[in-house]
Write a protein that binds this DNA or RNA. Sequence first.
DNA 1: TACCATCTGTTAAAATATTAACAGGGCAAA
DNA 2: TTTGCCCTGTTAATATTTTAACAGATGGTA
Lengths: 223, 223
Amino acid sequence: MVKETQNLIKGLPHKTIERLSQYRRALLICLEKGKEYIFSHEIAEIQHITSVQVRRDLMLIGYSGTLRKGYNIKELINLIGNIIDSPGGINVAIIGMGNLGRAVSKYLTHKRQKLTIVAGFDINSKKIGNEILGIPCYAPDEMKQIVEEKKIGIAIITVPATKIPETTKRLINAGIRGVLNFTPTPVVVPDNIFLEEYDMITSLEKVAFFVKQAMIEEEENRM
Amino acid sequence: MVKETQNLIKGLPHKTIERLSQYRRALLICLEKGKEYIFSHEIAEIQHITSVQVRRDLMLIGYSGTLRKGYNIKELINLIGNIIDSPGGINVAIIGMGNLGRAVSKYLTHKRQKLTIVAGFDINSKKIGNEILGIPCYAPDEMKQIVEEKKIGIAIITVPATKIPETTKRLINAGIRGVLNFTPTPVVVPDNIFLEEYDMITSLEKVAFFVKQAMIEEEENRM
DNA sequence: TACCATCTGTTAAAATATTAACAGGGCAAA
DNA sequence: TTTGCCCTGTTAATATTTTAACAGATGGTA
């Protein structure tokens, strides 16, 4: 990629990055259906956002569509790939092969060419040394070695809360570059490691809050 | 709750709601440890945010701490509960008891007193009529009846992409109030139903992007 | 050819969200 | 008791994100 493009990408807002990932997801489905071009308002509708936002995001990454035809789906997929994906791909490990870990593994396996789950870690001795869902499973104290050997860049944490401090220490020590934490316990990493945290309880409680509010408003209107 | 408080809550920013949920989560852990009071900077550190933001959020919900002692943990937990929780609780259904559905069920069961998973739905006849992880499982065409009977307010969607349109139609028909969609396929609901969508691929790709950027920057600095 | 409808691309404005700055107050140590 | 430190609460400033507004361009149509 030319340097100019790299400079564009550098300042991309976080929100735009997230949406680009979502656009690609939608575009891949469209491509499969045999669609060749797509309008900004079509993408917008799928994502529950406005077409202006779509056009603006695409402007930010320097992509131009064809007037009255829209955007070339294949081209756009490739461009988003150039932005998000690393050319050689990034290997991923799942830390904790419990229920959540396995669900995540199954969900993510073969979804993206440039992101490969290459290892799982667990303390359960029945799992260590075996494959789970096609993913070889290792003991926590092998982490540094395996991360280096398999060139693992990203770890997805799905262990119980009590194991978080130990797990984090091991990951930092192993030289991981990015962490996605699905645990309700916030993780502490040095700031050269990119950290993303997600807790489904927060999402659920957010829904609960707005459902409650809607009910209160209905109540008020009835009076 | 007095009307004044309700007016405060009404205009609460989405982000504040999310953080309140996270504060409570952290506070519950502190309470368990026997801690009585907590400073804004302590909460901030746990959540990787600034203490100003914590104080600002608490200001927005009208809570005052004690100078030099901080916030009373028990009080704050109760207040956040008053805001987020519905007094009688809200019942939740999991739509799709596959891997992800079961992981979500296990993860959420007994986590919050006011959110109870009371039903699962699946097309698999082996699951229908049985309990999975203690959750009774029903056929999709029983949805309307069960939602009404069990007073289910929120549905968590974890079905395969192909089943999304049908599932959504059933949920709308059943009179659901809020939807949390863990599927990569965006769903369409009328806007009297609150919708929250989360796709872990987006999170993972976000991490991948920033890891890539960090590596490019290192490369540049080396030259 | 002239007009109209409908796209894109971009700048400007508005709305949200975060951070800075600081006043006010209480406790502790000198 | 006075000084200094370290809290909270709040307003003001900044940064980020979204939305509005509109210029420009293309193709269909009368």
